[in-house]
Nucleic acid binder design. Sequence first.
DNA 1: AAACATACGGAACCATGTTCCGTTTGCCAA
DNA 2: TTGGCAAACGGAACATGGTTCCGTATGTTT
Lengths: 190, 190
Amino acid sequence: MPEDVPRKRADARRNEQTLLDAAAAAFVTSGVDVPVRDIAARAGVGVGTIYRHFPTRADLIVAVYRHQVEACAGAGPALLAGSASPHAALAAWIDLFVDFLVTKHGLAEAMQSDDATFESLHAYFIDRLLPVCTSLVAAAVSAGEIRADVEPFALMYGTGNLCIGAGRDPRYDARRMVALLIAGLRRDIG
Amino acid sequence: MPEDVPRKRADARRNEQTLLDAAAAAFVTSGVDVPVRDIAARAGVGVGTIYRHFPTRADLIVAVYRHQVEACAGAGPALLAGSASPHAALAAWIDLFVDFLVTKHGLAEAMQSDDATFESLHAYFIDRLLPVCTSLVAAAVSAGEIRADVEPFALMYGTGNLCIGAGRDPRYDARRMVALLIAGLRRDIG
DNA sequence: AAACATACGGAACCATGTTCCGTTTGCCAA
DNA sequence: TTGGCAAACGGAACATGGTTCCGTATGTTT
């Protein structure tokens, strides 16, 4: 199975890790839309090296956050199994997703950008998280807790949207708004 | 009262109108983030002329949509007077706001952008519409229809956010999501 | 250690917003 | 009517940031 993997050069492997670290640090201090040149400078490499390892900015972002996205995806079934109700599990899972988004400055914005560069970022999140969200929603619908006419995709998209600008104005609390949206899903509402 | 208004030159007045028309047309076909050069070309003027009349892009956007924003602001009291309940008036007004945003491609995005250029755009919308929203919310709260712990600002901000990307994916219906958010405001909900 | 492919650095290129200034033009006064 | 001047214009030039490209350097393999 581990076929003819040509095995990358040592310096290439080293640089990839260096870049991931530099990017992660840069994202924390300047948001995910930090200039590519800044990341290169921080890593001590040329910009060409970044593009060789990560053809698009989205690839770099995905690589940096992959672990956390996987963790979020993995938490879905666990929450469903351990929660009092499917609706509670859904709420808890969305909470996880929101926490992730609001702590990565600019990530929600990038994910919803219509810039073609970020399409694969959006695609990755949807690929990985939409199935989880779908199963949670399905469970809550089966339990009769929420209305049946909600696209899980729309729920995720809307949640992502609500996280945009979180922390920019103290009057806006993204978590709160998402909670209201989830509340609006309940079946007993007009 | 109409004091020492120095009265602009005829060509300047003409160009301002030409620019407004050209910008409006360009916004329709290419969204509000159409390149400045495109607008200039369409109007048959140089880019310098745009900047002289509208120092920032936000000024141009505001000028183009001023009428509609004023109309939306004006509709608030009218709806409150003519609706069955304050909650219905609030819902109808938000609907108006949403309709406005989703039909102006890129406007919702621009309004929530953290780009300093758009700060005055954001400020104008808030200045003009937040008071209206606040009075509608206050009326609904007084009537006991919605929970009292909602910042009108957050409601507007969240609504604007939910309009981002409207029409980009058929699975996402911004109007629907906003309706869910409004539903979530109702007082009888956990 | 020679040869080759891989990977690197960063200059160069493109797109876009913004500024600046030499030129043109409307307006008013003589 | 015309001379002069401030207002307004056009678009080249500049700043910024993403992306490409290629000559050079460096692992790796024989």
